[in-house]
Structure formats: C-alpha cells, structure tokens
Design a protein around this nucleic acid. Sequence first.
DNA 1: TTCGGATATATCAGAACTCGATATATATGT
DNA 2: ACATATATATCGAGTTCTGATATATCCGAA
Lengths: 122, 122
Amino acid sequence: MLNLKQDHSTLVVLSVLADGPSYGYAITKAIAAKSDGHFKLTASGMYPLLTKLEKQGLVTTSWEEVKAEGADPDASGRKRKWYTLSPKGRRQLDKHIEAHKQMQHLLDNFLAQTTTAPSATT
Amino acid sequence: MLNLKQDHSTLVVLSVLADGPSYGYAITKAIAAKSDGHFKLTASGMYPLLTKLEKQGLVTTSWEEVKAEGADPDASGRKRKWYTLSPKGRRQLDKHIEAHKQMQHLLDNFLAQTTTAPSATT
DNA sequence: TTCGGATATATCAGAACTCGATATATATGT
DNA sequence: ACATATATATCGAGTTCTGATATATCCGAA
C-alpha cells in the first residue's frame, strides 16, 4: 500500500475528478478502488490538497446536505463538499500527465545508460 | 530543468555510483550530463542526501587530497570526498528501480481507466 | 598579478510537505 | 446500545525543499 506524495496525489485526484464531480471521502475510496488497493491518500493528505486545488482555481466547490431516509426535511443532516474540475483544472491535468510521461521517459533513458543490472553475461 | 525530489534523487545518485566511485560535485555534473540537462540536483540537495546514504550504509566514503600540478607536496590542497556504492547500496538500487517500475505501471493503469484525454475522436 | 569563474564541500533558515492522531458529527447495521 | 462507516477538518512533531550563504582552492585570461 503506497502512500501518495503531493505530486502523485494531485495527478490522481484530478484524474478522479475528470470522471465527474466528487467529494473528499469518495475520492479516497475511488483512489483505493481504481488502484486495486495499491494507492492510499488519507484524510490528512486529501483535505489540504483539495483546499490547495481550490485556491489554485483547478476545482470549484459546493456544499450539499445529505438527508437521511425519511428524515425531517428541516433537520440538518451530514454535509458533503463537492469538487468539480474546472477548465483550468482540466488543462492542468493534461500538463501533469505530460510531465509524468516525460519524467518516465527521462528516467528510463537515464537508467538505460548504465550497467544498472547486477552483472551476469551468464 | 526538473529539480529532483528525494526519491528520484536517491535513484539517480545510486545509479551514477553504480558506474563507479564519484564525489558530490562530479555527481551533480554527471546527473546533468546523463539527463541531457533535464535533471538538476543542487549542492543543498546533494550533500544532505549523500550523508543520509552514508548513514544508511548504502555508500562508503574516503577523502582524497587534490594536489595542484607541481605543488608543494606538504601543502594541503583541495579535498574531495569520494563515495563508493556498497553491496547493500547495490541491492537498494535494484529495489528502487523495481519500485519505480511498479509505480509507473500502477500509475499508467490508473490513468488508463479514465477519460483522461480531452475529447476528440477526430 | 589580479580577478573572475569553475571546482569542491557544507550549513542555514524559512517554507512546504508528511502523516498519525485527534476532534466533531451524522448514518447504519446488528 | 454499540460498533463501524461516512464525512470534513486541523494539529503538531518530524522531514524535506531550496535559495542563500560560507569557506577555500584551482585555473585561465586580461
């Protein structure tokens, strides 16, 4: 189970939001599901990141009340904060994917230049 | 010019040392050269990292005096601290490469699951 | 011969990041 | 009634990041 750092978190969260609006808790679950349980982004990584994305204008937000089944319509239930990918966020996602591909390419090239393998012409 | 973070720095530095012993300044130059000028690891990232690798037993070190051409043999010239990859470091490099490949694989899979591309069946 | 740029190692400090723990509250299943 | 899941959010100790600073030698050009 790999804990994601900010760079990867950003890529992955924006990618999840590219599927449609979602909220913190659900994004956490989506990341675990889509990575087949390999990626983990906990609440203490998620919420500060989402706040940052909002400040950068990559996502827009709105609150929604989650009413319990047959609950008093006037009672205030649990709240969800929805995040929607903005056009700027969409472009940023594409940039992140590009950057990620480039990094892969450069790193592969870098490692290929060396006797990276232990030995054995055996 | 991409500034390397610790994970990538470690991979890249160990990889350079797999070619043979080297020292901080030369490793900096080697990273720039081998990445075709794309990777950058500055002194303030390099030396703390090398110290860490030494503490972890991934590299061994030794000092060497760099004598000036025809200099007084008793005069103390500039010093170099050489770093040599240890067997443990060699194994760690292999692990890092594996981890890096796995991350690539997982991330590619993750991104492939989504409508990541902007649009256009064009 | 003096001066600047390259070589060489290293730390500092403010900022940003990490991550388990904590806080708060509602919803659901047993 | 109680545990677990849903849901958002912050705290704080520790780590990492990065430009700036410190120190000193070497070398070539003016």
